[in-house]
């Protein structure tokens, strides 16, 4: 009887696996197109069709995209921006989410709604006031001009999500820490944050990607080439009357390498909880 269950289990697993495999092939078709377009000549791509196989592989596209596109500048800026924005934003979001999830105080409901309201704000209408503000702060046109709006626009979402996940952490754990004499600050830092690693990792990934790909604010707030980020840099391959598709696609492939690496690195924390349970079991 036991072996019957096991056999059924295995069959189930195989069906799920094959389903996932088929689905992921569909999911990868657009990616395959990006890759195919990045490794061939422009004439080959346009005359023979974007879904045909390349006549000749043109690896040189990558080097050319890197140099004509001045990618080294944009890469440095985007990475620097992520290093500044992501830890800062998530940390202050976590700070705010903690009392909203776990402490009782006056106006907590109102403050939560106040932050939630930010989710509803369309970023487009704030561009002009933001540019004026950055000018007054004297950081318009520099990479630093992007940190204030990026952090601000990330907060409502991050506070909302973290509050939700913090609520899942049993309050008894915090209570135990407090009984041990820990301050609220210590309880937050030593109990809440370590237990929320999957949620924090999830937010980090979303935030890294959002920051890496943000286009509109970066486009409007920064006009100097030295301070531009990768998505705005990609515009350069699209001229007034024609696009250099192959270089654009090569540039895109180059540009997604670091984010894919970050994703693969961070996603191990998604299943951190699983192991804890497994050890116990």
């Amino acid at each position: 009887m036991m072996s019957d269950v096991r056999r059924q289990r295995r069959l189930e697993q195989t069906v799920i696996f094959l389903g996932l495999l088929a689905l992921s092939l569909i999911w990868l078709t657009p990616f395959a197109t990006v890759v195919l377009s990045a490794i061939r000549g422009q004439g080959d791509l346009l005359a023979r069709g974007v879904f045909s196989l390349p006549k000749k592989i043109a690896w040189s596209n990558f080097a050319e995209a890197w140099s004509t596109g001045d990618f080294s500048i944009y890469f440095r800026n985007s990475l620097l921006l992520i290093a500044m924005k992501v830890p800062l934003g998530i940390f202050i979001a976590a700070l705010a989410a903690y009392p909203l999830a776990k402490l009782r105080f006056r106006f907590s409901g109102a403050i939560f709604i106040f932050f939630l309201a930010g989710l509803a704000v369309p970023v487009q209408v704030t561009l002009q006031p933001l540019l004026v503000m950055m000018k007054q702060l004297g950081i318009a046109n520099s990479l630093f001009a992007l940190v204030p709006p990026y952090v601000a626009f990330g907060l409502p979402f991050q506070i909302f999500v973290l509050r939700g996940f913090f609520r899942l952490i049993p309050s008894e754990l915090l209570e135990a820490a407090r009984l041990d004499g820990a301050s609220e600050w210590t309880a937050f830092l030593r109990v809440m944050l370590p237990l929320s690693v999957p949620a924090l990792a999830t937010l980090c990934i979303i935030d890294v990607l959002a920051t890496w790909n943000e286009f509109l604010i970066a486009l409007v707030l920064i006009s100097a080439k030295e301070s531009r980020t990768v998505p705005v840099g990609l515009l350069q391959f699209q001229g007034e009357y024609s696009s250099q598709y192959t270089l654009l696609m090569a540039g895109i492939l180059i540009s997604i390498v670091p984010v894919i690496a970050i994703f693969i690195f961070l996603q191990r924390y998604f299943v951190a909880g699983l192991t804890a349970g497994a050890v116990k079991g």
Binding site: L219, V220, K225, L235, F237, S242
Partner: peptide, 25 residues
């Protein structure tokens, strides 16, 4: 110093120009 906002067919450039002017920059 040249600043450039590429992009095909008057799609992006006027938006950027307009914002920079309206913000006095």
């Amino acid at each position: 110093k040249m600043e450039t906002v590429a992009g095909s067919g008057a799609a992006v450039y006027p938006d950027v120009l307009r914002t920079s002017m309206a913000s006095g920059d």
